[in-house]
Nucleic acid binder design. Sequence first.
DNA 1: ACGTTTTTGTGATTTTCATCACATAAGTTT
DNA 2: AAACTTATGTGATGAAAATCACAAAAACGT
Lengths: 227, 227
Amino acid sequence: MKKSKKLLLDKIIKNIPFFACLSGEQIEELRHVLIEKHFPRNKIIFVEEDTQNYMYVVLSGKVKVVHAGADGKEHILAVHKAGDFFGEMALLDGKTAPATVTAMDDTDILIMSKRDFDEYLLKDNKALMEIISVLCTRLREAWMVNKVLSLPTAKERVREVLKLMAMHSGVKDNRGTVITLRLTHQDIADYSSLSRETVTRLMNKFVKDGKIEILDDKNILLKHSFQ
Amino acid sequence: MKKSKKLLLDKIIKNIPFFACLSGEQIEELRHVLIEKHFPRNKIIFVEEDTQNYMYVVLSGKVKVVHAGADGKEHILAVHKAGDFFGEMALLDGKTAPATVTAMDDTDILIMSKRDFDEYLLKDNKALMEIISVLCTRLREAWMVNKVLSLPTAKERVREVLKLMAMHSGVKDNRGTVITLRLTHQDIADYSSLSRETVTRLMNKFVKDGKIEILDDKNILLKHSFQ
DNA sequence: ACGTTTTTGTGATTTTCATCACATAAGTTT
DNA sequence: AAACTTATGTGATGAAAATCACAAAAACGT
């Protein structure tokens, strides 16, 4: 393993709240049991209702957490980027995965087995408190999505979805907040439960009104005037 | 306290997953620190964004967990009946309450202070595991609501909301499942983010199609053919 | 650089609900 | 029981967004 990669891995691991309580030694140990795996774009990582035996950490790329509707449409519940983790729920309560996770780009992912998860995390009181705090965050996020979906107009829905993503994956700069997920209109539509065409029209309107700007790399800048 | 009431209290306490791991003595102890309080219909128990210092258990009646929209409309996230508990999140991560809770009927509620909560629950590893499992359940429920709200037609939304309530508050009998919450059409509308009129029309259609039946006490019977 | 696939842009049409406007019914209060 | 209040039933109308149907542009693969 390259030195720089090793350092990156260390940095990412240390930023996972679950692992915040582990000692340097423990992290070193941990790194040896973690498996790195590559998922090409559009590859499914796991399917809703699957029995799940791993927790995942995104190293690079991004993944979407989705519910698939009967009609083939999918609803995005969350998008995770480098440094985010997912799949912990099935490990915690032993039930099946509540949603499907798919790679949105070519994505490198770190995998931790249930055995190691139990070994390193479920024995330590402090780690359990961390897990609880993470679940609370997830719950608050789920309720926020909920709120967004019950907004009456398409415009509000798109606006709030953008704000939600800015909160989770936003980088502030002097002009506003940049959503670094490089989302397509279809992605935003799947997030806000609207049609792609409606999202296209609204995004253009936001641009025309000077509320947002699409940067060269397709990232979305929410200007200060946004909202 | 009347004997019968004491027994009821005991039974309810023992059915709360948080307390499942406590010994008989501990429960006895616990009962002395719990305060019982009455909330009349429509009384707000706590407000979104409030700093919250208690956990609550419903003894009788029912409460709704809601997000209030800017336009005065409210969106129901969950309904809790006797034996259910709520308000635990703010105690767990110290952040403000993520939603408002209101009594839907005259409701008796048991209150546990943060101090007792910490004292009895946050020290025990087994209790922490219980809390984690409860949070996972909440998260799965929140995602189900999410799924319902992203369904494209009003009919599906109402159908799935009814199924959700049946799952949480349903009593099976030989004809199907009875939702024992005595909900108004407005409640269902607030749950599914539809207008009251649309819900009325759809409920009548379900009745006419023989899928559901409104019992004398206003409870809703989902017949076996429902779905 | 060329063809292919994916994404975006935009008008025309249709559908579905929300809204409005009452009527009726059922429950509550006094 | 009369007077209110709350809940339900139902038609008519309108608005918002889905759908349909392409065109154009960008991104990607080889």
